[in-house]
Amino acid sequence: MELLMPGLGLIFWMTVAFGCVLYILRKYAWKPILEVLNERENLLANSFKDAKRVEYEMSQLAAVKTEKLAEAEKAREEIIARANKDAEGIVEEAREKAREEARILSENAEEMAKKYKREAMQEIRDQLSALSIDLAEKILKEEFSDKQRNAVYVSKLLDEVALN
């Protein structure tokens, strides 16, 4: 029966001791420990959240990057295509121009040639006429007697020259 009899002194001292333990531990042990545990868990949770967010953002960025890259690629191709086209156009134009110029040049040259030829013909004609007069004079001087024959001859000569 002694086992079940509570003792006044023990109850008193136990209350005092446990009360003190409770007070001291509450203030100097559990408060800092629980605070740190709580903060650490929050930190961890937030870190995970941040990591997840960053990961998501990174994936978003990657998507944007590929998109931009594709766009740039397309733009580049377009630019190149346009440049090629432009270059072709320029070349064609230049060719066209050159052709035109060549044509003009050749036309000019032809004209010039014709002009020179005409002038030359004129000169030849002039000289021929002078020469023929000269010749005629000489012939006239020499063969004044054989007038008929001379005339035929002269005409024949003239024809030959004209044919040339």
């Binding site: 333990v21 100097y28 559990w30 800092p32 420990i33």
Partner: peptide, 13 residues
């Protein structure tokens, strides 16, 4: 108990 846990608590603090 007090010595033990107060020292632990101080370390956390």
């Amino acid at each position: 108990i007090c010595l033990l846990f107060v020292s632990i608590g101080r370390r956390y603090h």
